[in-house]
Design a binder for these strands. Structure first.
Length: 252
DNA sequence: ATGGTAGACCTTCTA
């Protein structure tokens, strides 16, 4: 996060999002550059962790009902989930999600990924029952369909593309959520991540793993959703690009 | 061909 602060701030000045979800900030709360975002007019909530993981939620509207950590496993100390109510005139409850990578398949990390996804499904069901506008946003580390990657065969053995992983993602979606990028007709499978290695960006060997899931009340307001692909070719890029959803104030 | 890069950090782990 701090290594790429200028890159991120540049994107914020251009895109000017009302709400933003960050993942993999890789720092404790005290080291998150909250003042830089506050200077741009954002309210900041951070659930940080040293070296690994860490998530943050930024909003031009006040944040209420802040929940840090995904419920359901008391001994889980990895900072991968933060949720808050964005108290705009049309409020929306937003979660920033850094779902476990899960590699290698067959080891404890993969079991942890599947447990984490089961817990996310529980939380998602609880949120749906509120019948509010809800957006679950972030790095899901899930390639939902073969069309969401350049070469499905090369991902066959990877935790991001296992049948169990994809089924767990569908199970969350089928509770009643809309995959915002898939729902808008234009480029539904456009990639959101290109590895730093082996010229993945230059060869367009990308994958779509960053998702925005919307409750029915939020999906009713969906106008557009697209990854900001061009930033991947910029200075000091992340290996992920922002996925931006536009919601209207009134039902479409 | 199991390669290659990046970040935070205790010189290795995670992705």
């Amino acid at each position: 996060m701090n290594a790429r602060l200028e890159t991120v701030l540049g994107w914020f000045r251009d895109a000017n999002p009302d709400v933003a979800c960050l993942q993999e900030i890789k720092c404790v709360n005290e080291k998150f550059p909250a003042d830089a975002f506050e200077a741009l007019g954002y309210n900041v909530a951070v659930h940080g962790q040293k070296t690994y993981n860490g998530v943050a939620l930024l909003s031009k509207w006040p944040l209420e009902d802040v929940l840090k950590g995904l419920p359901g496993e008391e001994e889980d100390e990895q900072a991968r989930y933060l949720e808050a109510l964005v108290s705009a005139p049309s409020p929306i409850r937003v979660a920033t999600i850094y779902l476990p990578n899960g590699n290698p398949v067959g080891a404890e990390k993969f079991a942890y990924k599947l447990r984490w996804m089961a817990r996310l499904r529980q939380r998602a069901a609880t949120l749906l029952a509120l019948e509010e506008r809800v957006a679950l946003c972030g790095d899901y580390n899930v390639i939902p369909e073969p069309e969401d990657c350049d070469d499905p065969e090369s991902w066959r053995g990877d935790a991001l593309f296992q049948p169990e992983t994809r089924a767990a993602f569908r199970a969350i979606k089928w509770l009643g959520f809309t995959d915002a990028q898939a729902a808008v007709g234009r480029d539904p499978h456009a990639y959101t991540f290109w590895d730093y290695q082996a010229g993945a960006w230059q060869r367009d060997h990308g994958i779509r793993i960053d998702h925005i899931l919307l409750s029915p009340q939020a999906a009713d307001r969906l106008v557009d959703c697209e990854p900001h692909r061009s930033v991947r070719g910029g200075e000091k890029p992340s290996d992920h690009v922002p996925v931006v959803a536009t919601l209207s104030d009134c039902p479409a």
